[in-house]
Design a protein around this nucleic acid. Sequence first.
DNA 1: AGGCTAAACGGACCGTGGTCCGCTTTGTAT
DNA 2: ATACAAAGCGGACCACGGTCCGTTTAGCCT
Lengths: 203, 203
Amino acid sequence: MSLPPTEPQLLPLLGGPPPERRDAARNRVRLLDAAQELVERCGPRAVTMDAVAAAAGVGKGTVFRRFHSREGLMAAVLDHSETEWQAAVLSGPPPLGPGADAWERLLAFGRSRLESTLLHAELIREAGHSGARAGGAHAFAATHVRYLLTELGVTGDLPILATALLAPLELPILDQQVTIEGFPVERVYDGWVDLARRIIGRP
Amino acid sequence: MSLPPTEPQLLPLLGGPPPERRDAARNRVRLLDAAQELVERCGPRAVTMDAVAAAAGVGKGTVFRRFHSREGLMAAVLDHSETEWQAAVLSGPPPLGPGADAWERLLAFGRSRLESTLLHAELIREAGHSGARAGGAHAFAATHVRYLLTELGVTGDLPILATALLAPLELPILDQQVTIEGFPVERVYDGWVDLARRIIGRP
DNA sequence: AGGCTAAACGGACCGTGGTCCGCTTTGTAT
DNA sequence: ATACAAAGCGGACCACGGTCCGTTTAGCCT
């Protein structure tokens, strides 16, 4: 046994994890494309991991190495739409994007988020706990709402208040109201606006 | 082929599904006991349906006939504690039970629910969508909160407002704040009280 | 080019949730 | 008591998520 001929990494090379090998990257996009295509053709519920692997022309093990689990894969598919939505909030046209006053933006945010959540309901459910929603997406939304609340002059524990305002727009709660109790979406939205008014402390 | 000699049910016998056969009832309690015992010994995550069936001394098919699915079984186990809690709210000692004024009761309700949700977190997660929570339990909590809000003179769309007040106490949201973001429970509770004040419209 | 290492690959394999169907038990009507 | 229909039973069976490990391949260093 001898010392390795060279240090595999002379400098810490600060920054993140090592880059991805070319075949790995190629397979990741193949898998994501296949998954997206299958999801929108059969619905997320009916998509099996074997099917995705086969459609992408790779082995099953590869699917699980790229995306930890089925939930992870679904989360990745969901991430596509989520990212577009974030772009619309950050730099799209008003009133959702910048350019309108904070109250208008908050209203647009609520409606947009409500519709988006209902639109992707199945996928969100399938993405479950490891959903982009549970990680980055919620953080994004919370940050944005906190910013808007600040603009509106709200004082208090903003992270908590933002969460309280976001909570009724999360799928489990929306599902309860819309799917199970059968409330019309308009009513739920109006209720949310009312909640926002009370939190802000305005007529 | 002849006509059936008697009508199996002369009168509609209004009121629900036919009664349960004796062996069926016996197996239901055996299964529930076995499940509860296994859950508290190994944690809900580790309990398999085969194990429950074996521990109860019945076949696997029987488990699935009584409780539609794994989630259904977990929901049934959860239902035990949930029922006790409901009794405490309806007829236990104040301030959770009747006897205190509405605001005190609301505070006690919030704290109790928060603690109970965190305590049974794993089970609730495992019970998933068909959880007693998604069905009867949420309805109970919503009704109670609606009642308290009425007592406090709140006007508006009460069903929606009640849901908004309950939403931050649901597991997914609590999980986000406590487990992922690491907020202390006290802070979450204080935030909830603040939310309640704003909804009611009082200092 | 050639050689070497670590990463990636693929598909056989396993455990578990859920279904199916032929057999048994229960309750009732004669 | 006996007969009979319906509800219940059990365990073999299937499909799908997830793991494992022997083989292949990308990237790099000489």
